[in-house]
Design a protein around this nucleic acid. Structure first.
Lengths: 268, 268
DNA sequence: CGATGACTTGACTGCTGTCAACGTGCGTGG
DNA sequence: CCACGCACGTTGACAGCAGTCAAGTCATCG
């Protein structure tokens, strides 16, 4: 769902140690290096504005595993950029069933689906220790009034989300279990690559059950598929550690566009 | 996908005869009555601006069945509001397979997914004789700079599309064939209701194949399900004419939220 | 009136869900 | 440091839903 802001909203991942020692200087550097500065920094020009930013970011201390960033029904004030860690968004039906609507990795934005009604339609929960930047929507909107580039970028980001959600819709509706899982792996791989990490070796922070729920599969099926993929030499699975051995075949399996139409050739 | 703009972007449906006799006066009335005027009319204030509008709309003569509104890869200039008729959006994979990403009914907007890359990611095709209004995005954007209400509304509309696409994703991934079809019928019913037509009796403008493709089902399955629904007394099917007999049960079948969480109670 | 495409119905196969038992790793507490 | 317990993950057996193939019916259009 939110795999798509990297081009514009690229966030510099932070290590856990950095979270502890947030000095004003350090943060300024972090923000200036971060591609999010196009949103964050122009809020004010002066140094004191940056200090304001400090406050905003400082306010969000890292979430620990299982903690909520926001809950269904919470009023919408800000969108969030993931700096490190990962999250999942879930919506619960009246029957109490839980449905995962997406996973969020560093450099991605969450919460834009709340703009419509000023209420968060999903809960977003940390899958591990996770640090986020808060971007007050009010300020972002004000800013976009003056900066047409920013305004366009916001529209583009949202449009991209629509476009890619539609791709995901297709995937879920039309693909087999095998194709779904391959597509998810390709999606995560691509997103890791975009943020500068290895696209061929990564750790899944979500459980088999989470993956199954998201893909509309039984967790047993997910487990079996991991086994089959390994037998076929496509990947190596070690608990949550995934190594992609045969990127091309996996991409082919994922089918049309590798979840987001970016085959070998990079789009844009 | 695009079932969601009715609250704001309500378009007054036109009869076929109206298409033929577009007088300037008549059109002005049409635009002023149309809820789209919040977008269209403020472009200019003077009478000549409205004439400009006339030109824009006139340019779009009704599409006949099978005609393209735009094709994949076309450069993006405008979004479109459906006045009468209906359309489907399809994306074709490199393998030449066709996937339907959505149906569009009167009062709905199409083309917002092209903002991201300035290129239409899908082709949109008339399912019957169809008339649309063209809304030049350039002008819409310029206008939104001054009118914060309009700017917010655009964001809200796009946010809503994201939110509801996510709901659809869930539906496609998690629901059974029965639930999918029920959900589609409920969606269409709701959309008909919103534009002031009967929610319990309507004509499907798309083929069984289209429905199956969209829902990720074989067309035979769709056909069988229509039969089963009829046997169970939920609906009456006469070729493309659908009558909903047991709205409540169908809604229950559609599951969590009737595709868009609007059970008996109306949201917002 | 015939042809073509859309739809329906039937038989059969296979993928995937469900139920169930069994490993495996990690954290807690002795 | 070890043992235990619990959550997570794996594997197997079986059943059912939905896809595929195929034949036949119906509507629409030239």
């Amino acid at each position: 769902m939110a795999a798509k802001y990297q081009n514009f909203f690229k966030v510099i991942p932070m290590t856990a140690s950095q979270h502890k020692v947030i000095s004003l200087t350090r943060l300024k550097i972090a923000c200036q290096d971060c591609s999010l500065k196009e949103i964050c920094l122009p809020v004010g020009v002066g140094i004191n504005e940056i200090e304001m930013l400090d406050d905003i970011i400082e306010r969000k201390k890292p979430l620990s595993k299982g903690e909520n960033l926001y809950r269904i029904g919470d009023s919408f004030k800000s969108i969030f950029a993931v700096r490190s860690g990962s999250l999942k968004s879930i919506c619960t039906t009246e029957a109490g069933e839980v449905q995962i609507t997406g996973f969020h990795l560093p450099g991605e934005l969450v919460g834009m689906d709340a703009i419509a009604d000023n209420i968060h339609p999903v809960s977003t929960i940390a899958l591990e220790t996770t640090s986020v930047c808060e971007i007050p929507f009010e300020q972002l909107d004000k800013l976009s009034e003056k900066l047409s580039g920013l305004r366009h970028e916001i529209l583009r980001v949202m449009s991209r989300e629509i476009k890619e959600d539609q791709q995901n819709m297709l995937m879920l509706g039309q693909k087999t279990a095998e194709e779904k899982l391959a597509a998810l792996l390709m999606s995560i791989s691509k997103r890791h690559k975009t943020r500068g990490f290895s696209p061929l070796e990564f750790t899944l922070t979500m459980s088999r059950g989470d993956i199954g729920n998201f893909l509309g599969l039984a967790l047993e099926t997910v487990s079996r598929l991991f086994g089959r993929f390994q037998d076929d030499g496509l990947i190596t699975v070690n608990r949550k550690q995934i190594t992609i051995l045969n990127h091309y075949s996996l991409c082919a399996l994922a089918g049309a566009g590798c979840l987001h139409e970016d085959s070998p050739v990079e789009k844009r």
